[in-house]
Structures are given as structure tokens and as C-alpha cells.
Design a protein around this nucleic acid. Structure first.
Lengths: 232, 232
DNA sequence: CGCTATGTTGATCCATATCAATAAGTGTGG
DNA sequence: CCACACTTATTGATATGGATCAACATAGCG
């Protein structure tokens, strides 16, 4: 049916190897929607009705407790989120909101679970994806338990630099306010952390970052593939 | 071959639904070993040669960076660990050491991956297990980002109480030293945190905990199923 | 029994949060 | 196109949670 992004989705590792028949079945119940920024797509605690796929834009996964709130991750195209809740048919552990205007595909969780049971290529792809997600969270956990906020920021900048093609200058991918939350600190503290990295050659102008001395920063940040590598 | 615990393992959700033939193949390459306490079983960064299953005893998963170290989780019988690394054929993100005398089954990762590709029931079981693990880490991440150390301890005590059949008195499952690390604090701080919970009716005598006023503690701890429930 | 590891307590230090004020953008409607 | 409102970022002052250092107590363990 009318899922114009069907082809794009089909290329995702998650759907690449499943049978055409199953893919079509999945897409039949799916729909694609455009959302403005700052729309809450799902709320933690609710039952997982749809597997979500970010086709364009960006989505913030966050969680709250007792009046506090924290950013857990940012989902960028093209990837899925809340796969684990969908598979287990369990309530969402995180809420999600659009950061920018975003195009999101929604696939009924029930369909995902049905095809998952019937299509072993799909099941295997889900395993790969889940294992990947799991390892990402473990890395995040290590980051927060083993590093100070200054070290987290330094390593974040190195990761971001790599993602932005590796040059000495690049832009932050989102507001500092959110970056602070992602890194587990307050906005005020982030401001100070940026100043704290000046001695290591960091220059900040708005969202523009410049790394004056790569080696110096790396000597301070001590990035580790077991925490900072995004692949694997 | 000589895997006396084969039957016990067979009952694990992970292996229950796979074919006999595949199970036998898996067990052929597997072996079971007894370890004394404090033995490092695996080291983070190393390639994942074996899927590990704790048959008895207890295993601490921990991670280090730049001279620091933190406990990530405790594995108790009967469950597996480092499944994600095995599946992805990627290096371990955590190290593991026995906490007590432990009986561990080791299954060559290569075999796991081979059977995983051939047996779709096994693949599906792995998905369920991984999704579960993923959700556990997310909960741990929320716990640490959204709560103070006092709140984390209070909620830990409530969880532990439930696991220990729910009475007003129960024992800590491991040393305070490691509890501190699990909760992301220092041993000194944990001592003070226990005293900080006295006004909420907590009494401590060695590893023995007593909750004098359940409602009072819960009012302070504000446990949430989205952070503290172990199942789902 | 001592010996060693673990736990407690106190004093102090440091990192980070909080509160408050200001500045700098950003978007909106007149 | 500017003025206003509103959000975000910065800066300073202060408070607090938690770490560190040091001393001592205690409990297992050989």
C-alpha cells in the first residue's frame, strides 16, 4: 500500500533479508507520517503499539522520574527505535519526541511480532540490531560511570568530529541544552565544561566547534574503542 | 559428551525450543568448569570465544577505564552472559569475575553463531533474551541518571526485599564494597547512605537489613515499574 | 590468635547542581 | 523591518552531594 518509503526501508539491515511476501505484509499495515518538531511520539509506560522508524529528521529518546528528566539517546535516519519493547510486547521504557521536522514510519507491533515468528531471516536481523543496541547502552553506561563530565564532553567531541568527517571544525548536532542532558549534566555545567576544555585546544562559537590540537585533546580524553566506537 | 548439566541448561528459555540435534551439537563443544572466587573469567576487549552460562555461584560483570573500575551487573544462576558479544562476534565490553565458587558452562561462540543461523527457534529465543538484557541496562541507566545515591540505595533495598520473598528482614546479596560500585558510589558513601536511610526506618546489622516501615521507605524511594521491575 | 580485607567514621576537598542575573539569539506580529 | 516576547546560553555566587584521605574498628580467615 501507500508507503512511499517502502524501498528505503527495505534496504535497512533489519528488513533486507526477509522474504518479499513478509515485507509486503509488514508494509501493508504500516504508515508514514510527518511530524513537526517537539511532538511527543510515545510516552514511557504505554504499551508498545508500533515499531517506529525514523526516515528523516531526528528523535530524542528520554525518560523521567519524580519530576526529573534526562535524554537517553538520539535516533537519526535511518533507524528504528523501541524495538525491544515491541519484541517483548512490554511497555515503553522511554518517551520519544521529534527534535526537528521528522518523517516517521509506524509498523504495528503485532505485525512485527507475527512476522518475527514466521521469518527467520527477519528474526536473525532483529538479533543483530538488538545486540547492537545493547552494546550501545553498555557503552553509555560505562561512559557515565567511569568518566567525569569534562571527560565525557571531550570524548563526545571526538566522536562527533569523527562522525562529521573528521575535520578540525564541525557543528554540534543539537542544542547545548540537550547535549547537557545527554551527557548527564546541567546546561550551566556544560558551559563551564567547554571553558574547561579550552586549555586542551577547544574553541566554541555557537554550535561551531574547533579542535586546535587533536593530539592534546586525545591525550586528555583517552578515547577507548570499548566505550566510544560507534560501530561493532 | 560430558556436560553433566546438559539437562539443566536444556531447560533454560534460551535452549528450550531448539531441536535436539542442534542442542547436542552445541553441547558437544561445550564444557563445564568449577572456579574459585575472584577468578577473572574474561577481560574486556578480548574476542568473544565462549558464551558463558552461570550454573551456580555468582559472577560480577565490571568495566574499567583509565585506572577506574565499576561494577555493571551481577549474574546469578541460571543465566548467560556476554551473549551480545558472542552474537556480534565482537570484543567483550565488560570483564567478568567469579564472586563465589562458581560452576560455569562454556560454549564456543562459533558454535553458538552457527546454530543461531541454522535454528530459528534458537534465534528467536536469543532475541527474547537480548531484548530483556537491553531493557535491563536501560533501567540501570535511568536509575543512575535520574536518582541520587540515596534514592538508588532505597530502591535497591526494595528490589532486594522483593527478591528475598518480601519480608521485613533480608540479607544483602553481596559485599557492601561491591554494592557501592553497583550503585555507582564509594564504600564510604554507602555507609553514610545507610545512615541517611535511618530516618526512613532502615536498620542495618552487617549484611542484615531490616525495613521498619515499608510505607515510609516506599514514599521516599518512589519505586517505578519502569526502572525497578526486574521482569518484563 | 594475629593478619588482612572490609566496613565505619570524621575531616576536607572537589565536582556538580542550584539559584540568580544578564546576554544573546530566535521567532512573531504589528 | 523592527520591537517585543520568549527561549537558550553564559556567568557569577553559593550550596550540596559525593569523593578522597586518614584513622580506626571489625570480621573473616589461615
Amino acid at each position: 500500500m501507500a508507503v512511499p518509503d517502502g524501498p528505503g526501508i527495505r534496504e535497512l539491515e533489519l528488513f533486507r533479508d526477509m522474504t518479499d511476501e513478509h515485507f509486503v505484509t509488514l508494509m501493508r499495515g504500516a504508515y508514514v507520517q510527518n511530524f513537526p518538531p517537539q511532538i511527543e511520539l510515545i510516552t514511557e509506560g504505554e504499551p508498545s503499539d508500533f515499531l517506529h522508524i525514523v526516515l528523516s529528521g531526528a528523535v530524542d529518546l528520554f525518560a523521567g522520574w519524580n519530576g526529573r528528566e534526562t535524554s537517553m539517546a538520539t535516533v537519526r535516519p535511518i533507524s528504528t527505535f523501541i524495538l525491544a519493547a515491541t519484541i517483548r510486547d512490554a511497555p515503553y521504557l522511554m518517551s520519544a519526541r521529534t527534535l526537528e521536522k521528522s518523517r516517521i514510519a509506524l509498523i504495528p507491533s503485532e505485525d512485527v511480532r507475527a512476522i518475527f515468528a514466521a521469518d527467520s531471516a527477519f528474526a536473525r536481523a532483529i538479533v543483530a540490531e538488538l545486540a547492537q543496541c545493547y552494546r550501545s547502552v553498555i557503552k553509555a553506561q560505562k561512559d557515565i560511570k567511569l568518566r567525569t563530565s569534562l571527560e565525557r564532553l571531550a570524548n563526545f567531541l571526538l566522536r562527533q568530529q569523527k562522525r562529521a568527517s573528521g575535520g578540525a571544525e564541525f557543528d554540534l548536532p543539537f542544542e547545548k541544552r540537550r547535549l547537557a542532558s545527554v551527557l548527564g549534566m546541567t546546561p550551566e555545567n556544560l558551559s563551564r565544561a567547554f571553558k574547561g576544555l579550552q586549555p586542551y585546544g577547544i574553541e566554541v562559537d555557537g554550535t561551531r566547534i574547533r579542535i586546535r590540537d587533536q593530539a592534546l585533546l586525545e591525550r586528555f580524553a583517552k578515547p577507548s574503542p570499548l566505550i566510544d566506537d560507534h560501530a561493532s
